[in-house]
């Protein structure tokens, strides 16, 4: 086949692919985990491309947001660029016990909380905090929850029990759990198009803020005492009567073999750091501008050449 090609094609076509590559420690592919939300995909490609430019072989493997950590502890996958405190804390910590490496925290802060589109404020102006929201609970009701309002909660396996919080705060709401994140957005989109009041679980940073205007609902700021001491907080008879932390961590994780196998690459991933704005910008390119995640990664790297350069120094 190759000879035939050479015979037919002009020799000029046989350009060597790119410039000469630097020497790297191992040709073994570095497997980067991909999840199913935009920012994570784009950032994975950004890191992957940086490593490829250094001469490493990179492969991408899609994975479930919970399963991935154990797979990394087992050296099946090597790097995760976005680990969220809110939804992945326990799986993350368990995997660290089993050998997975915590490669540090991004500058970006995360928040997960009840969230309302801004148009809700027209009919329920006080809805930016939980008591105001509770006052117009009936606006959010559906046939099944009447007269209580309906809170569209995260998938049940994300480890948050909002039904308990509703009970602790004695709110007139019923928490309905979705099966997956897409269901949340479908509910939001449908309500948003019809300007129907809705309150649902949301987090930042993600693509939602670039597509929909809205705000988080403020709950009492959590302190350890909220969960231990019933007398703490608005309800003197219940624990858990508070919201989620306003700033959670966003971490990077690597397989135990990473540092030994590719020390050069490890030095890079230690330095990799994203801010909220950078993450939102990456998600925007895909979710609003309609780029493919891979294209978006290239565009992002062009715009942020200095940031990328600082990692590889």
């Amino acid at each position: 086949m190759k000879n035939l090609l050479k015979g037919v094609a002009v020799a000029a076509l046989m350009l060597a692919p790119g410039a000469a590559m630097a020497e790297v420690e191992s040709d073994e592919p570095i497997i980067i985990v991909q999840n199913n939300w935009t920012s994570q995909l784009v950032l994975s490609y950004v890191v992957g491309k940086v490593l490829e430019d250094m001469g490493y072989t990179v492969e991408y493997a899609p994975s479930d947001s919970q399963l991935q950590f154990q797979a990394m502890a087992d050296n099946d996958m090597d790097f995760q660029v976005e680990a969220w405190e809110g939804s992945m804390k326990s799986a993350f910590e368990k995997a660290v016990e089993n050998g997975m490496v915590d490669v540090g925290t991004h500058s970006a802060e995360t928040r997960e909380e009840w969230w309302i589109p801004n148009y809700v404020l027209e009919t329920c102006p006080e809805a930016t905090n939980w008591e105001g929201l509770n006052a117009c609970a009936e606006q959010f009701s559906t046939a099944e929850t009447k007269p209580n309002g309906r809170f569209v909660g995260p998938p049940a396996d994300w480890g948050k029990n909002y039904a308990d919080r509703v009970k602790s705060l004695e709110m007139d709401f019923e928490a309905i759990n979705v099966g997956q994140a897409a269901t949340l957005w479908a509910e939001l989109q449908s309500a948003y198009d019809r300007k129907e009041p809705i309150v649902l679980f949301n987090w930042t940073p993600n693509f939602i803020e670039s597509k929909f205007e809205g705000t988080f609902v403020d709950f009492p700021k959590p302190e350890p005492a909220c969960f231990d001491d019933a007398s703490w907080g608005p309800n003197p008879n219940a624990t858990g009567d508070c919201g989620a932390p306003h700033s959670g961590w966003l971490k990077k994780a690597a397989s135990p073999r990473f540092e030994e196998e590719w020390p050069g690459a490890y030095a890079v991933i230690e330095k990799v750091d994203f801010s909220n704005a950078q993450i939102a910008a990456a998600a925007l390119m895909v979710d609003v501008d309609g780029m493919e995640p891979e294209e978006a990664a290239e565009a992002w790297m062009e715009k942020n050449a200095d940031v990328v350069a600082s990692w590889t120094e």
Binding site: N36, A181, A182
Partner: peptide, 19 residues
């Protein structure tokens, strides 16, 4: 694709996730 296969199924799930 829910458990790690790439391809159309994976992309499809992702598209749905993005609405």
């Amino acid at each position: 694709s829910i458990a790690g296969a790439t391809g159309l199924g994976h992309k499809l799930l992702y598209s749905l996730q993005q609405l």
